[in-house]
Nucleic acid binder design. Structure first.
Lengths: 349, 349
DNA sequence: CTTTAGCACTCCGGGAAAGCGAGTGCTAAC
DNA sequence: GTTAGCACTCGCTTTCCCGGAGTGCTAAAG
């Protein structure tokens, strides 16, 4: 059965009022909010229906109403007005994203902190995709007879490098051959495969070179493994303590511990750019009475990034959704730019 | 005036009892703790003296005593027994530090998380030293006509690299000359100086090369700036909520916000390997009724790392100090090893 | 001079009781 | 279908009371 327009209108008022005040909303307040055109008694009749239908709840007999998860769901799906960011806010977001940073991780964690400060809820960030990262190109740059720089370009165009200390002197003249071998036999394969091939070529080169080769390969394996790992960043968890629903230290502690520990079981938007999970819609027990708004954005190169905001079920969905979309778009743009152009053009300080 | 041995003994019992229970300790409990050899009445007389002298405080007339900051100070300086870690714990620490990680930042933040889980207090980690980082060597590796890898070795032997997308095609043959110029004119100078020199050489090279040069230099400037920045990591802030003194959400929020925001004003051990700051000894207002135990360790290459633990004034100084020292030593060893040897030797998976 | 037992007193913390007030559901009239 | 009126419910805050832990003081004993 469809709700009448007026019922929806009332539901909307209840949700929005409750989002702001965190207190049960009474019939009188609703009547006032709606312009005083209908009396509180009428509202009460409607409220009773809405409770009956499961969209609202009553903490106790003589209290106002609060939205149920079902009520929030209807609100989010139909009633919520898409909030537009003010120009000033859009600018602040763009400005916040004007980071000149090299490392993907840094950019992401920094962005997470900014988002958290914008929405005033705990925010997590992660990346997804990128199952099989491989090396695409190797170089070795001799430094002196005891050390050598290894440079590796990965499948996603990122370049990693490190100084290797050599246990044995290596004849510089042989380096190019070694680089050839690396590029011919150790590119575009998985880390495990690399280790295996290393064994195969063991007897084809001199011991000194083999040592250098194996150092290089194990560096590559480590880097690929580390780069493939998905890392999760958390920011703004302390925001929770400002909320009335988390003034109870135990509740706050429980959720915060979950948030700072869990690397895996945070919600991801399985499809579409944004997903809203309300209370019990969360599979994860620790999130059962919180809501999560999570958006994804394009990092380029088959990878997607993830921004999620965790809050009480009465969180300001419209505001959070708008800001999250703003950031997601901004980040997509940021990474798109990186993709096409060099990171910076301006040579002056 | 020196305290009698018995007074010190009593003070010690009060501190250690209070550290455990967070409740004012009464004369009777002290008498029992001390073996029942002296009566509670005697203890009461002594307690009155200790209050008089400022080592203890009385929350209200008819309550037990709690240590004052001065009392904790005496305890830490003279009374506290140096706690030895059990073999099992030492092993757990060593095991936790068996990380094969490339990035210094990662190692540090990971270590911070481990420390936090060991001591059950919020823990911060940072690095100090390293004021003027410079580039020591450049390389450019052509990839194709639109891109090129820049490799830079810094003063501390770290190597950074990135793929540059070129706006203009560059003649590969001219790259070596460019690398020479970089190595001759842009090494061992500050980032600001680099930008200035870039202007000087503007008319000595072709526009294409200059563009590449300026991209390289601005990459270098960014990296040096980012690398020189001291970054602070926080872990385990949620541990606070378990403590009775932070069950009040406002207090907890205040401290947690301070901890997660402040990058600069966290205590550092100005000399020696470890420093303990008790309550009001903290210059920073936000830390006035907390204590901080901070240790430093050697990263090598003029840099020092920092582990700090923040807790209530009644924190378990002996336990924290022992574990912190254990970790600091472990980290010094870890970095010492990295310094001398290649990061890994074992080529098998 | 120090230690100890005894005792009246203080004050915190918890629990019960009371009053307040916001809000409801119901009835009857419009 | 809507509204005014009204009795009623129930959580929250305040007040009050009481138990108990712990003190300070006094006076006696070592």
């Amino acid at each position: 059965m469809e709700l009448t327009d007026r019922k929806k209108q009332i539901l909307k008022v209840v949700v929005e009022d409750y989002i702001q005040t965190a207190e049960p909303v009474g019939s009188k307040a609703i009547a006032a909010e709606m312009g005083g055109r209908i009396s509180s008694a009428t509202i009460r009749n409607e409220l009773a229906d809405l409770v009956e239908l499961g969209y609202l709840e009553q903490p106790h007999t003589s209290a106002g109403r609060i939205p149920s998860p079902k009520g929030y769901r209807l609100y989010v799906n139909e009633l919520m007005e898409q909030q537009r960011l003010t120009l000033a806010e859009t600018e602040r977001i763009d400005q916040a994203l004007q980071m000149k940073m090299e490392e993907l991780d840094r950019v992401i964690s920094q962005a997470g902190r900014v988002v958290a400060s914008f929405v005033n809820y705990p925010t997590y960030m992660a990346t997804s995709g990128k199952k099989h990262l491989t090396a695409r190109r190797f170089d070795l740059l001799p430094v002196d007879e005891h050390s050598c720089i290894v440079v590796m370009m990965m499948g996603d165009d990122r370049v990693k490098s490190q100084l290797l200390r050599l246990q044995l002197k290596v004849d510089t003249g042989q380096i190019p051959a070694l680089v050839d071998m690396l590029n011919n036999h150790f590119t575009n394969i998985s880390g495990g495969e690399m280790s295996r091939r290393l064994m195969d070529v063991a007897d084809q080169v001199s011991p000194q070179l083999f040592l250098l080769l194996s150092q290089t390969v194990s560096y590559a394996v480590d880097v690929l493994e580390e780069a493939g790992q998905r890392e999760v960043f958390m920011a703004g968890a302390n925001q929770l303590l400002k909320l009335p629903e988390f003034r109870n230290a135990d509740k706050a502690h429980e959720l915060m511990s979950f948030l700072s520990d869990s690397k895996e079981n945070l919600p991801v938007p399985d499809d579409g750019p944004m997903k809203i999970l309300i209370g019990p819609e969360n599979v994860n027990a620790a999130l059962r009475d919180t809501s999560v708004v999570v958006a994804s954005y394009d990092i380029g190169d088959d990878m997607r990034g993830l921004i999620g905001v965790v809050g009480p079920t009465r969180m300001d969905y419209a505001a959070v959704a708008a800001r999250l979309t703003g950031f997601a778009d901004g980040l997509t743009r940021l990474f798109g730019k990186h993709e096409k152009l060099p990171p910076k053009e301006d040579p002056q300080t």
